[in-house]
Simulated assay, not measured.
Amino acid sequence: MIQKYFPLDKNYILEQAQLDQEERLIVYLIDFAKKFYLDQFNPLGLEDDTVKQIKAHNTEYTDRLVEFYRNLAGVYRYKHGNNQLEFLFDGKDHYDKYTVDWVATYEEWLVDFCLRPNFLKAVLELTVFYPEGRKAELAESRMKAFIHQHFELKIYKYKGIVKMKIA
């Protein structure tokens, strides 16, 4: 299992559903970011070096976005993950319901995230342009800062999620 992000992070069914979708949803994030960039910042379809590199990029699973995905999954559990199982009258089990709900929220969040240029730039830097060394660390830091700013939550390695106090 992954890190416990807050004391009541015990919805193990939701956590497993998120882990099982990890690879597929990270690849979805990369593909979505590339398409979004091309649609928003190159509506005429002009071919320059950047556009050629984005189009030529073969999306594969990338470990550079795993931490971001897991932090985002932790934020979702923090905001939506109730430990009590609800009654489901449609015949589905909780795993299926959590999977559908998580994927829908994740895809919804990506639309909002990609409207922010810093997020889009960081995703493309970590995947398509794949910098080595210092630049990669800066892009990963921007991803953490994005979660901090967007959700007003700070994620610490050992303390987990802490709600930010606005003065």
Rank of each mutant, 00 (worst) to 15 (best):
K144W: 11
L46H: 08
V75I: 14
E132Y: 12
D31W: 03
P131R: 08
K157E: 13
Y158W: 09
Y98V: 05
L65I: 04
N11F: 03
E125I: 05
K144Q: 13
L19N: 14
H94W: 11
D90S: 10
T99I: 02
I2H: 06
G160A: 02
R142C: 03
K97M: 01
V111E: 11
A33H: 02
K144E: 12
R64G: 11
D9M: 02
H148G: 02
V51G: 00
R77Q: 10
K121L: 14
N82Q: 07
A33K: 04
Q16M: 09
H80Q: 04
N82E: 05
L138S: 11
P7K: 01
K35E: 15
E15V: 08
L38Y: 07
Q53H: 09
D31G: 15
E22R: 14
V111F: 12
L65C: 07
K135I: 08
E15D: 11
I161P: 00
F89K: 10
E86L: 13
D49G: 10
E108R: 02
W102R: 09
E22W: 01
I155R: 00
H148L: 10
E107Y: 02
F41R: 08
Q149P: 07
F36R: 04
T99Y: 05
F87A: 15
D39P: 01
D39M: 09
I166C: 12
I161R: 00
G74K: 00
Y69D: 00
H150D: 14
F87E: 15
D9L: 05
Q18A: 12
Y156L: 08
R142P: 00
L72Y: 13
H57V: 07
F41C: 06
F146P: 00
Q18D: 04
F146S: 03
D49E: 14
V128D: 15
N42I: 05
E137V: 10
D101P: 01
F41M: 04
D112S: 07
Y37V: 00
L120F: 08
